[in-house]
Design a protein around this nucleic acid. Structure first.
Length: 215
DNA sequence: CTCCCGATAT
DNA sequence: ATATCAGGAG
């Protein structure tokens, strides 16, 4: 049976991450809120490295909804066909651009309901935009944060939404905005899905993951 | 729950 | 060879 991190351990946990990386940045390439939104939609079940490779040339040509629409769905596909699930992503991005132009004057809406009403945008993507583009203290629970939370004992849950609600209650306000990036980066490079680097992990002292001696 | 679906790490 | 990657829609 796994145990939850104590409030004291949670504070230590983020103190450690803060000391190592005081100003954590996302690794998805973007130039404005619109390209951020598109990059996050493309990043579903894909590595950000692979997404960045495609978006570097795409965003040079199309950094607004209007310019994206001008490419046409097949033109867009020619840029992103190295990314998994690219057919549905291309369709969603075109629909998303139409809605941005028709309903929001080409701007990115700043509330979750409007964001989630865009094709291809669910709660996780909406939360990333709210956090990164509008500086709101929300946690977007992706595959990394879901795994890190359940492993370390930061928060347990069977679904991302369940984990998100618990994280919002358990993480002190002062860490909340940066916690999102810290947890994603920690999951990507240390608390990896396959071979977590427990022996050299900076937050080993606070972590409740069993079997970390053998990993 | 299934489908979408290429690149990369192991 | 297969698990995994800043998930979302039907």
């Amino acid at each position: 049976m796994e145990t939850l991190m104590t409030p004291y351990e949670i504070d230590r946990f983020f103190e450690e991450l803060s000391a190592l990386d005081p100003n954590p940045q996302g690794e998805l390439y973007s130039t404005n809120p619109f390209t951020l939104l598109v990059a996050v939609v493309l990043s579903a079940q894909a590595t950000d490295k692979g997404v960045n490779k495609a978006t570097k040339s795409l965003f040079a040509v199309a950094n607004t909804p209007q310019k994206m629409l001008a490419l046409g769905v097949d033109g867009l596909k020619s840029y992103i066909n190295t990314i998994g699930l690219y057919n549905t992503k291309a369709k969603n991005i075109m629909g998303l651009c139409i809605k941005l132009v028709d309903d929001f004057g080409g701007q990115i809406p700043d509330n979750r309901d409007a964001l989630e009403a865009l094709p291809g945008v669910g709660r996780k993507t909406a939360n990333v935009v709210l956090n990164a583009a509008f500086n709101e203290p929300v946690i977007a629970v992706d595959t990394h944060i879901f795994r890190v939370s359940n492993r370390t004992g930061l928060a347990f849950g069977k679904t991302p939404l369940e984990v998100e609600k618990k994280l919002m209650k358990r993480i002190p306000q002062k860490w909340l905005i940066k916690a999102h990036h810290w947890l994603v980066l920690h999951g990507r490079y240390i608390c990896k899905a396959r071979k977590p680097l427990c022996l050299t992990c900076p937050v080993r002292g606070e972590c409740h993951y069993p079997n970390k001696e053998t990993a």
